Computed example of a mutant assay.
Amino acid sequence: MVQPDTDTIARIRKSTAETRDLQRGAMDLDASGTETRLEQTVRELQARVDEQQAALDQVRIYNQKLRRSSHVNIQQAAYASGNPRDKLKQLRAVKAAYTSLTPVAPFLPSKDSVLPALLATRTLQQNVRGTKQAIASTEAQITSSEALLKQEEANLHDANLIEEALRDRTVRLEAQIEDRSQKAPAQLAKELIAAKRAQKKRHDEETQRLGDALNEFVDDYLSAMLAAEELGGPVVGDMLNVENETLAAGFTKKGRAKAAKKPVSDNIRQRRIDQIWGSRAAVEEEEEPLTEAEAADAEMRELIGILFKTLTGPGGGRAYHQLERDSAASRFLVRAKIAQFHPKDAQKLRLIDFGRELDD
């Protein structure tokens, strides 16, 4: 029983080895004969072209002779005649032409020709090129579709939020209408007055809180930087920590802080302060003179107060304040997009009314 199994395994191994050798032989490329086969294919194609050219020349000569010897109109002969007899003659001529061409064997390359491989390669290259172009076009379409989908999803999310907010607002309004319909006018007036007073109180408290925060910011940080810009130093924001000694020493023409070799006298500092900020920088009944930072602080507070009065004044937020000079405070408010100059006059300034569009 052992011998038959051994013979079977041996035959299977032999068959496998022969199949592997055949596959390797089929995959091997005879590089030495490729050039010869290419040259042979080119010669065959050139011979075929010459044959076709000769045949075409003979057809041309025959057509010329036929035209000279025949009085038939080519344009009329190209279409079916209305006369049944002429139409029958045309059909017989066409049948004779097809019958004469049918026995002619089509041109086929020789067995060793590489023309089929070249044609297949060209077709594969065209298919690969077309597939790559289709892939690139499809990827672009997918990217565009994904971007559009994200935009539509965002729009849908916003629409849902708006719908929910409107629904809640509708419910609140309906509840308020129902509540007001059950109350007397005098009671409604009292509640409205109380609500307005509470709202005004909240606004006043919030205004006071924001005003205190602004004054603290100006006093602790902004005033020194404004003074440095006024004295020829860097603009606000370029030098964050500005000391009083630096302001007292001044700045060079290039905007750099001067080295303080000796303390600057108070008289020189006061004259410089009066020259830049004016005599109004001096505070009455104060024993010590103002520093540069304190003078800039006072100017900023005064400018903001004037601009607020102009904003809430009779101009309705469209009136401008006439500046006495181009100051670092006004330039900072414009850079911070808190105020804006007049389009035709840089000496006029007003605050930007952010709530005007909502009020309108």
Rank of each mutant, 00 (worst) to 15 (best):
T34P: 06
S327L: 03
A10H: 11
D86C: 07
K190Q: 11
D179C: 03
A329H: 01
M27W: 10
R169F: 12
S70Y: 05
S327E: 00
K337C: 12
K262L: 12
S327Y: 04
E174N: 14
L88I: 06
R301A: 03
L119A: 06
T36H: 11
R24L: 13
A259Y: 10
P4S: 03
D353W: 06
E35I: 13
R122L: 07
S279P: 10
A93R: 06
I306V: 14
D274T: 09
F332T: 07
H203V: 14
R272G: 11
A329T: 10
E286R: 11
L166W: 10
E153C: 11
I74Y: 04
T312G: 04
T102F: 06
V104N: 10
L247A: 05
K348A: 08
R20K: 12
D274Y: 04
G82V: 01
S100L: 02
D21M: 07
A175S: 14
P4N: 08
R325K: 15
Q125D: 15
P116A: 06
Q53K: 04
I142Y: 00
T170F: 09
T131A: 13
A257M: 00
R180F: 05
I193P: 05
P103M: 00
E174H: 11
V72L: 08
K87Y: 06
K201T: 14
H342V: 03
